[in-house]
């Protein structure tokens, strides 16, 4: 809330987020280095739900490629992407949001999927059916992105900041 107030006074807040509406994937604004400063929903993320999303195959499935202390108790996490245990030491909230929304703005060659994006897709499918998509929806909803960002913000290790 304090952040919202600060942003309001700075005069850069999006009207839709003030009204509780979501920023559509096409309207997300990235900084030069790929960060997304504005919350997609204006509603604070729920880190507990973020953990569910991160570890569920049909949702974020972050665990498929990343290890993190937050889900070390669960079996079968991958190691394609970096270990996220201290990711909040390395990236602030806006950078984390930018990476979850569309990491290709931050890391140009990354294989990481863009979780809140509907552009530049080649043969998008309908889930895992192999059939064409009936409608193009981002992999995660705006609030699910915020929930994952809220989770990632808790991934801090003391002493390494």
């Amino acid at each position: 809330m304090r952040k919202l107030f600060v942003l309001c006074t700075a005069g850069v807040v999006f009207i839709p987020s003030m009204l509780g509406a979501e920023t559509a994937p096409q309207d997300v604004v990235f900084t030069e280095h790929g960060a997304v400063e504005e919350s997609l929903t204006g509603v604070p993320g729920d880190p507990e739900n973020g953990l569910k999303i991160a570890t569920t195959k049909k949702k974020g499935n972050c665990m498929a490629c990343h290890t993190a202390k937050g889900w070390e108790h669960m079996p079968l996490h991958g190691n394609i992407g970096p270990n996220l245990s201290d990711v909040a030491n390395r990236h602030d909230e806006a950078e984390l949001r930018g990476i979850v929304v569309n990491a290709k703005h931050t890391f140009h060659d990354t294989v990481m999927p863009s979780f809140y994006n509907v552009d530049n897709l080649i043969r998008p499918g309908d889930g895992f059916t192999g059939k064409p998509a009936k409608e193009i929806k981002p992999l995660l909803s705006a609030q699910e992105v915020e929930d994952v960002v809220a989770l990632l913000k808790t991934f801090k290790e003391s002493g390494s900041e």
Partner: peptide, 28 residues
């Protein structure tokens, strides 16, 4: 080398750039 689908992955994303790593429990 074409990155297909909602996940925007090509054959190369996994089998050239990331072979020898694990995707969940699978050794690529």
């Amino acid at each position: 080398y074409t990155r297909y689908g909602l996940l925007q992955l090509s054959c190369a994303s996994c089998h050239e750039k990331n072979n020898n790593n694990y995707i969940r429990g699978d050794h690529l």
